[in-house]
């Protein structure tokens, strides 16, 4: 392969991985845009999505579009329950404590997965099949295309939802000031649940897309969750376009470092770069700096 088509090949694989990171990052953003906390169970939503899908598709033999829908709803429900049962009962507003409740939840969910699905990895066949598409000497699988398409579909829908629809605007109001939102009669608790439902659903979508490629085991979500978190911080925490940009950038960067420098040092570079970005631009690439008012 020529140098340039090699580059293109790495770019494609980077974009595909990046789209997954971006989807996970979107889940973080959705929660940031209502509850203003980091939900470290986001990665486990992805794992749950993958496992639900294996059960619906392979054990219950439900056709895939329906199985996918069921998985998305099921994980959405898990997200809803996490907010409704755990976070809303919390007797504190301290963000760090709330974050560690989600970390507890993450460990708990992994325990549940081990209990129900065991420790062995599972996989299901690709949702779409077909010859890879060849482009300037590099090839792009149909699955990658699907992942990219779904990624862009999700961000468009979310963007419209938040900018245009009434509930989306209400959610943003809650993020801006929960107290003011409650005062003007917005159902703050319900809206927070909705955002966790959305986060769960987004996690499930990422899971559905990644499992045919890599398989799923109880801890798949851990590292992907971290990468998604890194992506959203890189893009500017809470910004939807930032999540997409951060995800794709992280994916491409990793692929290029792995391809041209050393696959082993891929992660060292990725995180060292992230560290540098933050040192130079403390609010990420697309983040806005907020000033405290006194």
């Amino acid at each position: 392969m020529s140098e340039s088509s090699l580059f293109l090949q790495f770019l494609f694989s980077g974009l595909t991985a990046g789209a997954i990171y971006a989807l996970v990052a979107l889940g973080f953003c959705v929660v940031e845009n209502s509850l203003r906390i980091v939900n470290f169970a986001q990665g486990d939503f992805l794992t749950l999505g993958g496992f639900f899908m294996t059960t619906f598709l392979l054990s219950l033999k439900i056709p895939w579009p329906l199985a996918a829908l069921c998985s998305i709803l099921a994980v959405g429900l898990c997200g809803y329950l996490l907010e409704r049962i755990a976070l809303r009962s919390a007797k504190t507003h301290d963000p760090l404590t709330l974050i560690f409740i989600t970390i507890g939840a993450s460990i708990f969910i992994r325990g549940l997965i081990k209990l129900f699905w065991g420790k062995n990895p599972r996989i299901f066949p690709p949702l779409i099949t077909g010859e890879p598409i060849r482009l300037l000497g590099a090839s792009l699988t149909r699955e990658s295309l699907l992942i990219l398409a779904v990624g862009f579909f999700c961000v468009t829908i979310l963007h419209l939802f938040y900018r245009v629809s009434r509930s989306g605007k209400a959610l943003r109001a809650v993020a801006y000031s929960p107290r003011a939102a409650a005062l003007i009669g917005l159902p703050v608790g319900f809206l927070n649940s909705v955002s966790f439902f959305l986060a769960g659903a987004l996690g499930a979508v990422a899971g559905l897309l990644i499992v045919p490629v890599t398989g799923v085991s109880f801890d798949t979500g851990v590292i992907l969750g971290l990468k998604g978190y890194a992506a959203s911080v890189l893009g500017g925490y809470g910004s939807f376009p930032g999540a997409i940009a951060g995800g794709l950038l992280l994916g491409v960067m990793e692929a290029l470092v792995a391809g041209f420098i050393s696959s082993g040092f891929r992660d060292v570079f990725a995180f060292a770069l992230l560290f540098c970005v933050l040192a130079i631009k403390p609010s990420g690439l697309f983040g806005t700096h907020e000033e405290e008012r006194v």
Binding site: T92, D94, F100, I101, G104, A105, I109, G111
Partner: peptide, 21 residues
């Protein structure tokens, strides 16, 4: 071993939810 994560995660959540301090 089976229930280790369940207990650890559940305990962490429980304490932080009900006794945030």
């Amino acid at each position: 071993d089976e229930y280790r994560d369940l207990i650890y995660g559940g305990l962490l959540m429980g304490v932080l939810i009900f006794f945030p301090d």
